[in-house]
Amino acid sequence: MTQSTAPPLVAPGDPPPTDADASPPAPASTERSPGRSTARSARRSLAGAALAAALRLRRVSGLIAVLLLWWLGSGQGWLGSTTPSPGSVWSAAVELVRSGEYTHHLGVSLERVGKGLAIGIPLGIALGLAAGLTRAVEDVIDAPIQAFRMLPHLALAPVFIIWFGIGETSKTMLILIGPIFPLYINVLHGIRGVDNRLVEAARSCGLSRWGLTRRVILPGALPQILVGLRQALGIGWLTLVVAEQTATTSGIGYLMTDAREFLRTDVMFVVLVTYALLGVLSDLLVRLVERRALAWRRGYTGR
């Protein structure tokens, strides 16, 4: 990487420490300089590992506290007689998994969400892109989309059952609708928020309209687009809950309604924990994408 095909024209000793108004951020490594004595560096790396472990512990400490309180509360009867203990929820989960019920229902639910999002997410992005890149499209579609956005899409559930029947179509359609709006809004505003000075500079480099879109406008809008994606996934799971509450005999939502009939609160809690885990997992996925795609950013990370 250090090949230089032309002699540098800068005066010797130029790499300027003085012209820094934005000093390069210090690398996030715990070892700043090679240790003078091995003992000291070993001690420092040990301390570093301990610090990392402590930080990791801090990140999960809240969760552990909640579980602990739940366990204690159900044991002491603070939470009433109808709240299952973590232990009984766990054994209910093991039983459900062993009988194969859990996997079956989870599979059905994942398929529903997958289908809905597979159409809803691209549709939302496409609408946002079309409106963001072309004023005429925005003028035409923005008003109706904003009007639909104000309508709580979950209220459409009964209508969809009448329109599309009680089968899979009405459920998929309901899950499909939700994510469109957050994506549309975030893509559109992400594009509108791209710094025009960068667009100007890139255009003066001879970029075509397509090149400009691909290299400047989309990357510039990406942080906002990913925010939209996170919101969309959240709405996807939320819609799943509603879609599976009526007219179905499969899916984790059904598992929950069925358990209600037999007052199996332990099974209901299994489903609730499943919803939480699914939400967390999908959010984690987007955050991984974010970390890779937005590596160029140096945002404020808190203290």
């Binding site: 540098p8 820094a20 108004d21 934005a22």
Partner: peptide
């Protein structure tokens, strides 16, 4: 321009 070796830096990592 005397920046050989900085090819893979991000712009934010450079001084003005």
């Amino acid at each position: 321009v005397g920046l050989a070796g900085r090819e893979n830096a991000w712009p934010v990592e450079l001084s003005g």
